[in-house]
C-alpha cells in the first residue's frame, strides 16, 4: 500500500510526464518549428547549452527576491505593530496601506526605478512593495486574534505590557504571520521578475526576466522556455520551503 504522501507526490509527477510526452510527440509528429512551439527536448537542449548564463541570471533574481522578502517581513511586521498600538494610528495609516496594495506595481515601478539610481536596490524595493501587504494584514490580524479568556487571564494576573506582548500576543499571532509569510515568499519572486521586466536592465547584473526579454528579441524561443522553466522551479522550491517552515513553526498546535 502506498502512503498518501508518496501518492500526492507521484500523482502530479506522473501527470507531468504524460503531458511532456504528448507535447514532445505532437511537436515531432507535425514538425512544429521551435520558434512557434519548442518541444521539451529542444527546451532541455537550450537549458544545457546556456545553463551557466541562465543559472547566473536566476541567482541574481533570487538575490533580489530574498532581499525583498526580508525587507517585506521586517517592514510589514513593524507596520503591523505600529498599527495595532492605537485605533487612531490605524485609522490614519490603514488607507495608505490599502492604496499601496491596490496600485499595480507595473504602474509605479518606472517611478521607483527613476527615483532610486541603484538598480538592484530599486528592483528590491518594487518586489518588497508587492510582498509587504500580506505580511502587514496577516500579522495585524494575528496580533488581534488573541483568545479573550487568555487575555483576561493575563490581565487578572497583573501581567505587564511586555509580558503580554511576548508571552501572549506574539505567539498568538504566529499562525497568521506564517500564512502571510508563505504568500509573501511567492509574491517576492513575482515582484522581482515584474520589476526586472519593467527595468529591462542589461549588463552583468541582469536577472531571468532580462534573459526572457533577450531571448524574445532573438526569437530564441526554446531559451525563453528554459528561463521560464527555471523560474517555475525556483517558485516551487520557495513555496515548499515556506510551507515547511510554516508547518515546523506550528507543529505543536492542533
Amino acid at each position: 500500500m502506498m502512503s498518501s504522501r508518496t501518492f500526492s507526490l507521484l500523482a502530479p509527477v506522473t501527470l507531468g510526464i504524460i503531458i511532456l510526452g504528448i507535447w514532445e510527440g505532437v511537436c515531432r509528429f507535425w514538425h512544429i518549428p521551435p520558434y512557434l512551439m519548442p518541444s521539451p527536448s529542444a527546451i532541455w537542449r537550450a537549458l544545457m547549452l546556456d545553463g551557466v548564463a541562465l543559472l547566473h541570471a536566476l541567482l541574481i533574481t533570487l538575490e533580489i527576491t530574498f532581499a525583498a522578502l526580508i525587507a517585506a517581513v521586517v517592514g510589514g511586521v513593524l507596520v503591523a505593530f505600529l498599527l495595532v498600538q492605537s485605533p487612531l494610528i490605524e485609522r490614519c495609516l490603514m488607507p495608505y496601506v490599502v492604496i499601496m496594495q491596490v496600485t499595480p506595481i507595473v504602474a509605479i515601478a518606472p517611478l521607483i526605478i527613476i527615483l532610486i539610481h541603484n538598480t538592484p536596490l530599486a528592483l528590491t524595493a518594487c518586489a518588497a512593495l508587492v510582498a509587504i501587504f500580506p505580511v502587514i494584514s496577516n500579522t495585524l490580524q494575528g496580533l488581534r486574534s488573541v483568545d479573550p479568556d487568555l487575555a483576561a487571564y493575563f490581565q487578572m494576573h497583573k501581567a505587564s505590557r511586555l509580558q503580554t506582548l511576548t508571552r501572549l500576543r506574539i505567539p498568538s499571532a504566529l499562525p497568521m504571520f506564517m500564512a502571510g509569510l508563505r504568500i509573501a515568499t511567492g509574491l517576492s519572486l513575482v515582484g522581482a521578475i515584474v520589476a526586472e521586466f519593467v527595468a529591462g536592465t542589461g549588463g552583468n547584473s541582469a536577472g531571468l526576466a532580462y534573459q526572457i526579454l533577450q531571448s524574445g528579441f532573438q526569437m530564441d524561443i526554446p531559451r525563453m522556455f528554459a528561463a521560464l522553466f527555471l523560474i517555475t522551479v525556483a517558485g516551487l522550491v520557495l513555496y515548499t520551503a515556506a510551507a515547511s517552515l510554516q508547518r515546523f513553526a506550528l507543529r505543536h498546535r492542533s
Binding site: D149, L150, Y153, M156, L168, P171, H252, S254
Partner: peptide, 14 residues
C-alpha cells in the same frame, strides 16, 4: 485569587 474558565484556556504553543 485564581480563575478557571469554562474552556481550559491553555496556550497551545507551550
Amino acid at each position: 485569587m485564581a480563575f478557571v474558565f469554562q474552556d481550559a484556556t491553555l496556550m497551545p504553543w507551550a
